[in-house]
């Protein structure tokens, strides 16, 4: 049995590393979307990127190129129209419209062009088990440096996400930072889409942040917990998928959901972890 596991791990080590980096990247990035209350965007971006993926497959182009092109176009359109209000619609309405349109057009393009439905299945389930070292190199080479950029800009990004009005009065250009954040999320999503699938992309943006908020006692702790939970959820999901021969994307989501529920339960039973000494988490308000 041990021998079998070791062989499996050796065979799928690229897949596990891709899952690890994807979980780390999406978990940490998702905290910014939580802060900005833009999680709906986290659901729409993978779906829109998925449309680009399908279009590229139909046109016999590299799928990631199509996904990147379409998702950048979408974010660019949002930025141009204004994230607050677009053509008389709320930003949420525009994002929702994009979500449902992308989903419908993906299915229709598949049907009309005769593209294999395999592409749609990939988007739904992910194909992390077939990840190659090229996938890993792309993730590590582009995704992690981008996360480092966001980390270095974190102070301004946190202010802009939490209190954009104050940022504006301080003379900080809010819109370019927001657009940068959305482009960053798009890059991370495109890089992980083929491996994890649209559903798992959204799951890994949403769930680790939710779990982290329950157990972390500081904002730095929220980022650290979210990255860790994302990593564990993604790698754990791949492990479960391997063990029971299940699709990897949904198992990543279910594993992350389980971790989130445990964190929420633990967070209610004890004071937040990662409390700084003397921060008086349980002291009554003065």
């Amino acid at each position: 049995m041990n021998g079998t596991w070791v062989e499996l791990l050796a065979f799928f080590h690229d897949a596990l590393l891709v899952a690890m980096v994807a979980g780390f990247l999406l978990g940490a990035l998702g905290v910014f979307l939580h802060l900005r209350r833009s999680l709906f965007l986290g659901a729409a971006l993978p779906q829109v990127a998925g449309l680009g993926f399908i279009l590229a497959m139909a046109a016999h182009l590299p799928p990631w190129l199509g996904a990147l092109g379409v998702v950048f176009g979408f974010v660019g359109l949002l930025a141009w129209q204004g994230a607050e209000e677009a053509g008389g619609c709320t930003a949420e309405a525009v994002i929702g419209l994009s979500f449902v349109t992308a989903m419908a057009v993906s299915v229709l393009v598949t049907a009309l062009t005769g593209t294999e439905t395999h592409g749609l299945e990939l988007l739904l389930k992910g194909s992390v088990l077939t990840s190659t070292c090229q996938d890993l190199h792309r993730l590590v080479g582009i995704g992690l440096p981008w996360l480092l950029v966001l980390f270095l800009l974190r102070r301004r990004l946190v202010l802009i996400s939490l209190d954009p009005e104050m940022a504006r009065t301080l003379g900080i250009p809010v819109r370019p930072y927001e657009v940068g954040l959305f482009f960053g999320a798009s890059v991370a999503i495109v890089l992980t889409l083929q491996a994890a699938g649209a559903m798992a992309c959204f799951g890994l943006l949403l769930l680790p942040g939710l779990g982290a908020l329950a157990v972390a006692g500081t904002i730095r702790g929220v980022f650290a917990w979210a990255a860790a939970l994302g990593t564990i959820g993604a790698v754990g999901g791949v492990g479960i998928a391997l063990a029971w021969d299940l699709p990897a994307g949904p198992t990543m989501v279910v594993t992350s959901l389980g971790l989130t529920l445990i964190c929420r339960w633990a967070g209610r039973r004890q004071p937040p972890l990662f409390l700084r000494p003397g921060n008086g988490g349980s002291r009554p308000a003065a």
Partner: peptide, 23 residues
């Protein structure tokens, strides 16, 4: 301000420094 997030008092005050120091 959203109080869902565990910002410390110092985190909050440091936000006011964001425009004065390098991004």
């Amino acid at each position: 301000l959203d109080e869902l997030f565990p910002f410390t008092v110092r985190d909050m005050v440091e936000m006011g420094l964001a425009a004065r120091h390098s991004a």
